[in-house]
Amino acid sequence: LPPAPQQFKPIQHHLRTAQEHEKRDPVVAYFCRLYAMQTGMKIDSKTPECHKFLVKLMDQLEIMKKQLGDNESITQDVVGNAHVENYAYKMFLYADTEDRAGRFHKNMIKSFYTASLLYDVLTVFGELTEENIQHRKYAKWKAAYIHNCLKNGETPQ
């Protein structure tokens, strides 16, 4: 994909997460891009550079769907939802365990942040559950808080 236009800053991190999961978990990568596509269309699909970018993203999604064709996570929403939700929760749990053990490092910050992005992605399947809304809020806040503490040389509480 070409670099995303400025208007698509809100989906930049979801697109990066897709790229990072291309090999590790293509289903997660697919739904991150689908989320980016749906959100991107809401942000701006008229401006030529945005439209061009969305067409490229759509091309990529269609290719991925073909490649993943017989995967039930792609063909059935309920399975896809469970797959992304489990993955997000695993990320969240890993970061939370590290946090509670007082082990603060870049990897756990990234896991909190990625979990929060994946809870965004879950909205492609419908409204989030109250629990997922809370996890997303907590993960986003924790990632920012611990990041700032480490940057300022402070110990997170």
């Binding site: 699909s45 269609e62 063909t75």
Partner: peptide, 27 residues
Amino acid sequence: MGSVGSSVASAEQDELSQRLSRLRDQV
């Protein structure tokens, strides 16, 4: 000319929406 431009843009958007619907079609 403005109206031709806007109809082209709207047709392009429709095409993108249709492709998105096809993508979301459950088997």
